[in-house]
Simulated scan of single mutants.
Amino acid sequence: MTAEPIDIIDILLVEDDPGDVLMIREAFEENKVRNRLSVVADGVDAIAFLRREGAFADAPRPDLILLDLNLPRRGGREVLEDIKSDPTLRSIPVVVLTTSSAEEDILRSYDLHANAYVTKPVDFERFIEVVRQIDDFFVTVVRLPPGGAA
């Protein structure tokens, strides 16, 4: 019995901390994740990327968004609200991936229709495991909406 080939998915990481970006990239490499990872460092660029504006005119439509809450120029909560209120973007699953474990951040994120809320582990090995589990869940378990709708 052979496993069916897994489609490569496009993931948008919205993260301003270069150390966290590096850890996520390393976690993908460590886990041999073949998905395409695009990175933007603030909320303004995240919305421009998703709407394919300006420098992001040729950006792929992500199948999954990993979103930090604490971002410069436009915070993660506002980005999440923009995504989930836009009929062309709201079907894209958003995983809030942040250092905050504050109950109000968790509740607010789910109120804004985040698909999951994950607190970033500080331990690198645990961080790698969390990224692997997110990837496994969204690539092998969950059925994502068809991409390409603009």
Rank of each mutant, 00 (worst) to 15 (best):
F127D: 00
V14K: 03
Q133H: 12
M23F: 15
V130W: 06
L97C: 06
D68R: 02
D45L: 01
G54E: 01
A46F: 07
T98Y: 04
S101I: 10
A46W: 02
D45G: 00
A41N: 13
D16C: 13
Q133N: 15
R143Q: 15
A116R: 01
E104H: 14
G76Q: 05
S100L: 06
R51F: 00
V40I: 06
V14H: 02
I83G: 08
E103W: 05
A102M: 14
P121N: 05
D123G: 02
L67D: 09
K120L: 04
D105T: 12
G19S: 14
R61M: 10
A150T: 12
L50T: 06
R108A: 14
G76T: 09
S101W: 07
F56H: 14
P72G: 07
M23C: 07
V141N: 10
A27V: 11
K120V: 04
D111Q: 15
P145S: 04
Y117W: 00
R36F: 11
S100W: 10
F137I: 02
E29I: 12
E29L: 12
P145R: 06
V130K: 09
P62K: 00
R132H: 13
A41F: 03
P72N: 09
K32R: 14
P146I: 00
V21A: 10
D68Q: 04
A150H: 13
